[in-house]
Every structure is written in C-alpha cells, then in structure tokens.
Simulated assay, not measured.
Amino acid sequence: MTDTPIELDKHRGMAAQKATDIRRVIADVEANAKLLRDKQGVVEIEILTAPATSWSEAVAKARYVLNLYSAGLPATDTHHRDLVSAVLADLTRLAGEAT
C-alpha cells in the first residue's frame, strides 16, 4: 500500500469525467441554495418580529415583500408587475424626501 493517491479520473472516459463535474456543480448549487434559504428565513423572521424604527426601515421591509411578490408573478402578468414597479418608485421617491 502506498500513501500516494491514485488519480482515478485518468482511468475514466471523458463522458464520465464530465458527469462527475456536473454532479459536483449541482451539489455546490444546492448547498448554496440552502444557505440562501436559511438567510432568507432569518431576514423574514426579523421583518416579522422587529418593528421598523424609521421610515427607511419600513421602506426596506416593503421593498423586500414587494420583490418577493413580484418574483412569484408570471412573466405575462404585466399589469401587476407595473403596479409593483410604480409602488417601488414611489417608495424610493418618498424615502428620499423623508431624509
């Protein structure tokens, strides 16, 4: 027995190597998606439990919720997408006036 690792990829075909690479990439993406979901959960708990202490915080919370809502809209629902855009523009304008 030797302490030198054997490079198994050399003994496999190119298709098998690519399949392994794809599985590794998918595993990385899934791990990152889980981290994002976990962070999203933390943000949403914070939004639910901590009341806004300023208009800018309230605007940030509203933007977050509107962006979540907008992300779930079908691409063909241009009417609701336009409504969300208009409200976000209003929030941006009014937040600038409040400071």
Results as ranks from 00 to 15, higher is better:
residue 1 M to G: 15
residue 1 M to Y: 12
residue 1 M to D: 13
residue 1 M to Q: 13
residue 2 T to A: 04
residue 2 T to V: 00
residue 3 D to V: 00
residue 4 T to L: 01
residue 5 P to S: 01
residue 6 I to W: 06
residue 6 I to M: 06
residue 6 I to S: 07
residue 6 I to P: 02
residue 8 L to R: 11
residue 8 L to P: 03
residue 8 L to K: 10
residue 10 K to F: 00
residue 11 H to T: 12
residue 12 R to Q: 08
residue 12 R to N: 11
residue 13 G to E: 08
residue 14 M to Y: 11
residue 16 A to P: 01
residue 16 A to N: 12
residue 17 Q to G: 01
residue 18 K to R: 14
residue 18 K to I: 08
residue 20 T to I: 07
residue 22 I to S: 04
residue 22 I to N: 02
residue 22 I to W: 03
residue 23 R to T: 13
residue 23 R to W: 04
residue 23 R to D: 14
residue 24 R to F: 05
residue 24 R to Y: 04
residue 25 V to S: 12
residue 25 V to G: 06
residue 25 V to Y: 09
residue 25 V to D: 12
residue 26 I to Y: 07
residue 26 I to L: 12
residue 27 A to G: 05
residue 28 D to M: 14
residue 29 V to A: 06
residue 30 E to P: 03
residue 30 E to V: 08
residue 31 A to H: 07
residue 32 N to G: 07
residue 32 N to W: 10
residue 34 K to P: 01
residue 35 L to W: 11
residue 36 L to C: 08
residue 37 R to M: 07
residue 39 K to E: 05
residue 39 K to N: 04
residue 39 K to V: 01
residue 40 Q to F: 05
residue 40 Q to D: 03
residue 42 V to W: 02
residue 42 V to H: 07
residue 42 V to E: 10
residue 42 V to D: 01
residue 43 V to N: 10
residue 43 V to G: 06
residue 44 E to H: 12
residue 44 E to M: 11
residue 44 E to Q: 14
residue 45 I to R: 15
residue 45 I to T: 14
residue 45 I to C: 12
residue 46 E to G: 07
residue 46 E to Q: 14
residue 47 I to N: 05
residue 48 L to N: 13
residue 48 L to K: 14
residue 49 T to Y: 09
residue 50 A to S: 11
residue 51 P to E: 03
residue 51 P to K: 01
residue 52 A to F: 03
residue 54 S to I: 11
residue 54 S to D: 02
residue 54 S to C: 06
residue 56 S to K: 14
residue 57 E to L: 09
residue 57 E to V: 14
residue 58 A to G: 04
residue 58 A to L: 09
residue 58 A to Q: 08
residue 58 A to P: 06
residue 59 V to I: 13
residue 60 A to H: 09
residue 61 K to F: 08
residue 61 K to I: 08
residue 61 K to D: 03
residue 62 A to T: 14
residue 63 R to Q: 04
residue 64 Y to P: 00
residue 64 Y to H: 12
residue 65 V to L: 13
residue 65 V to A: 06
residue 67 N to I: 00
residue 68 L to A: 08
residue 68 L to G: 10
residue 69 Y to I: 06
residue 70 S to P: 03
residue 71 A to Y: 12
residue 71 A to R: 10
residue 71 A to C: 00
residue 72 G to I: 05
residue 73 L to T: 02
residue 75 A to S: 08
residue 76 T to W: 08
residue 76 T to V: 13
residue 77 D to T: 04
residue 77 D to E: 06
residue 78 T to N: 11
residue 80 H to L: 09
residue 82 D to C: 00
residue 84 V to F: 01
residue 84 V to C: 02
residue 85 S to L: 05
residue 85 S to P: 04
residue 85 S to T: 10
residue 86 A to E: 15
residue 86 A to M: 12
residue 86 A to S: 11
residue 87 V to D: 02
residue 88 L to Y: 10
residue 88 L to E: 03
residue 89 A to S: 10
residue 89 A to D: 12
residue 90 D to K: 13
residue 91 L to D: 05
residue 92 T to P: 06
residue 92 T to M: 00
residue 93 R to L: 03
residue 95 A to P: 09
residue 95 A to V: 10
residue 95 A to F: 06
residue 97 E to Y: 11
residue 97 E to M: 07
residue 98 A to W: 10
residue 99 T to N: 13
residue 99 T to Q: 15
residue 99 T to P: 07
residue 99 T to S: 15
